[in-house]
Write a protein that binds this DNA or RNA. Structure first.
Length: 305
RNA sequence: CGCGGAGUAGAGCAGUGGCAGCUCGUCAGGCUCAUAACCUGAAGGUCGGUGGUUCGAAUCCACCCUCCGCAA
């Protein structure tokens, strides 16, 4: 079968990697987002999917498109049976959804209709959900509202991080995607409509969501935010007009502190939260390099007592 | 010309013109059943670089190098 593949990030890259191993699947074209300026020097950085294509010397035409119009110039109607979209980040117009002769499919990192939107995996962890999941849905104009062909779920524990969960879900997603594709062709598999009344939503994660306040949040919530936002945006707090990123932390149970109270030993740093206590293990003050907490205690302790 | 912080002992930080400091680490010794605890002592510096101002510069000026936060 002929497939055109659209995507950008880790999720899309992992799934593509698995699709390439299937003998009966022929990926004829890859579409990804244009390289965007990144970092302090605004260097252009290609998407992870594009880097994957280049570093593996894949012999598949790869295009960079930022909108539906550009996609329509690349793909002819009926040219492929499926258009598979993972982690692309742009709403597609109906004309694009109509391009494949069979279906336009999307692999989404939650159990739809829960967590429709841009950040399902992060929010699964942030919300401390017990069950993570993955769906293959038919794409419709309304975001992540299409009928579902197949899904799979995974029980998360309270130490799971976003990169770890993406890794697991993308492998599961690739498996059900391949099953879905084959069953549509062999058995004319039909999708099941979502129950729209149960839908929940998640948006792109703004930087401010990583701001933690020890007076207002539980240690569990902060630890969940840390695990959810570990690659972006990260979590941070302010103290005395200085921003501190928390780069590693854990919950401790044998120490009771008032909310917002800091406690230090020679090599350890603890902070009381609304409920519970957090130990900070790695930290980065604004304008400084990241440092382990024993270095931090040596130089910064005096600002916290 | 996007905005901003920073470079001082192995690490992290003070130090705004007059003898180079603090905490931690390291080493030696002591205390202790014992210790990441405590006590005593020691080693360890071209204050990022170059030039300038000055009787005198870590400190003021100019340029350069490097690291980082924000923004995108």
């Amino acid at each position: 079968m002929k497939i055109a593949y659209m995507g950008s990030g880790t999720f899309a890259t992992n799934i593509l990697d698995k699709l390439l191993l299937e003998d009966n699947i022929q990926i004829t074209k890859i579409i990804t987002q244009p390289a965007k300026p990144f970092g302090r020097k605004k260097q252009l950085l290609a998407t992870e999917l594009k880097q994957f294509v280049d570093s593996n010397n894949l012999d598949i035409p790869t295009f960079e498109c930022s909108n539906s119009k550009q996609i329509l110039e690349i793909l002819e109607p009926g040219e492929v049976e499926f258009l598979v979209v993972c982690d692309y980040g742009v709403l597609l117009k109906q004309a694009v959804l109509d391009l494949p002769s069979k279906y336009c499919l999307n692999v989404h990192g939650s159990l739809l209709p829960h967590l429709r939107g841009a950040s399902p995996v992060q929010m699964t962890i942030y919300n401390q959900d017990q069950l993570a999941g993955i769906c293959v849905q038919e794409m419709v104009l309304k975001l992540d509202a299409g009928p579902v062909f197949m899904s799979d779920s995974y029980e998360v524990d309270f130490t799971e991080t976003t990169p770890g969960l993406i890794q697991k879900l993308s492998i599961m997603g690739a498996n059900i995607l391949i099953k879905t594709l084959n069953q549509i062709l062999d058995e004319n598999l039909k999708p099941v409509e979502q129950n729209a009344s149960e839908a929940t939503f998640c948006s792109k994660i703004p930087k401010e969501m990583g701001c933690v306040n020890f007076l207002e949040h539980d240690a569990k919530q902060i630890f969940a935010a840390f695990r959810a936002f570990i690659s972006w945006p990260g979590i941070y707090f302010t103290h005395g007009d200085v921003v501190y990123k928390i780069l590693d932390c854990k919950i401790v149970s044998d120490l009771d502190l008032k909310p917002g109270e800091f406690s230090f030993s020679k090599k350890q740093m603890f902070v009381g939260c609304l409920n519970g206590t957090l130990e900070i293990l790695k930290i980065q003050p604004q304008g400084k390099k990241e440092m382990d907490v024993s270095s931090f205690v040596a130089g910064y302790k005096s600002r916290f007592v």
